[in-house]
Design a protein around this nucleic acid. Structure first.
Lengths: 246, 246
DNA sequence: CGTTGTCTTGATTACGCTCAACTCAGGTGG
DNA sequence: CCACCTGAGTTGAGCGTAATCAAGACAACG
């Protein structure tokens, strides 16, 4: 069951310290871990939406298809993330979710969320905080897609991924594995695959990002932040001592 | 105090039926209504974030400035909406919020949200559902900005606004007042003001949208939906009988 | 060693931006 | 009542970023 330290507990611990009972409650959300292969569909648009998933290991993404065949990737999920929070208010899935790498997911029904609301004020608040942090991420992505050049989009995205990975994996320093094809990157950033390639080349020439297959190196994080107008307050300023005191 | 039926109660009632106590609880959130003028700033980026606002009347929008001077409008708020949900997990504002028209807002501190969590499971769930619905709206907007042509962006946005207005104002039929300048529309849609003008003309020529100053007429809603690839499931499929039963 | 999928590079095209001039409505003051 | 001013919206010309199409390089794999 809990061979590894639970991802979700370490995720929640970012927000505030938890009692043992609360940890136990969270552990219940990770009861039935199931293996899932890279490329496998977790669920599709219009499927009934009655459960969340926690991502215990591996990467996943959610996406939508457009009528012209384009695809927009909406979210990239990393270990510890909760998948499907968006659909709590809906009866059907609004997005497809697919695994990027092999991984392990744990399902828990929406109903259990209500038990959590009933049993712990702290966890309720943290759950709410996670929701608002997701909104902040979405908002940032929205600005990125709407207003920035391809160079900036790429820089911003890579910077964001780097920070998100470092939050749980402190020992990466300036480099990480990014298991995304350029086509997937294009679908994330609203670009064409060819332009992703060109943009990568351009960033390399300027010494901002180096890349070998799926391995990315960022020699100068500050420079990349400047290029992508990256401001990390939406990722880091989420510790809320207020919650505990109340 | 409650001269009008509370906007927030009618907003929550979309999700499920409320007991009298719950209505009383919600009413407390609308305690100190304050008038606010068109164009006034509700709050600015980096200001301390320790309260929400409910919008009792009038329109508002949240926005961010970019380094190149561009501005991105992130959200348009209508009467009954809660402003600032996104910043629950943060200590500082991530967005500026400004009134579009004259209006009335009610402030309530984050702390009171915790009381609400403590006192009503139903309201907690609905609050959570509202958060996830906001995410769905954001997601839809993201797809719109990332992937669609100017024509589609405009069509989609106008259709969305029409449906949102009709949810609280059932008697509008195919026309409504849209108190936004073309510059503001441009900042919403990630276009230039000139191109908004051109796009409006193009849509008019094709008989999809007519417009006189701030008055918009949609002769054929279906046609507009087709043009903008509009699928209303993210706005309408949010009634959750599951919540009450639990 | 051939096959497949991913990535790269080049040539052309197009959508929306910028700059700039012009129209028009509303408001103000003489 | 008219002249002027202002801000919003319109229209045109030229440009630039990124899309598209297409061919070729490269790596991984059987």
């Amino acid at each position: 069951m809990d061979q590894d330290k639970s991802c979700i507990i370490s995720h929640f611990s970012h927000y505030c310290s938890l009692t043992e009972e609360e940890k136990a409650l969270l552990n219940e959300l990770e009861e039935s871990p199931t293996d899932i292969k890279a490329g496998a569909l977790l669920w599709a648009v219009d499927a009934p939406a009655n459960e969340f998933c926690t991502l215990r290991s591996g990467w996943a993404y959610s996406y939508r298809h457009l009528e012209n065949g384009d695809r927009q990737i909406l979210e990239v999920f990393l270990p510890g993330d909760i998948i499907g929070l968006r659909e709590f208010a809906f009866s059907k899935r609004l997005e497809n979710v697919r695994m990027i790498t092999d991984g392990v997911v744990c399902h828990f029904p929406h109903k259990r969320m209500l038990e959590l609301f009933r049993q712990s004020l702290t966890l309720t608040s943290v759950m709410f905080a996670i929701g608002s942090r997701q909104q902040a991420l979405l908002t940032e992505r929205l600005v990125n897609l709407a207003r920035r050049s391809a160079r900036q989009k790429m820089s911003h995205f890579l910077h964001e991924m780097y920070l998100r990975l470092r939050q749980t994996n402190h020992d990466i320093s300036g480099q990480f594995r990014l298991p995304l094809s350029q086509e997937q990157l294009a679908d994330i950033l609203g670009l064409s695959p060819v332009h992703v390639s060109r943009t990568f080349s351009a960033l390399s020439e300027d010494g901002l990002v180096f890349r070998d297959r799926h391995h990315v190196t960022i020699p100068d994080l500050k420079a990349l932040a400047t290029e992508g107008e990256f401001d990390d307050c939406y990722l880091t300023d989420n510790v809320r001592p207020l919650l505990i005191s109340a």
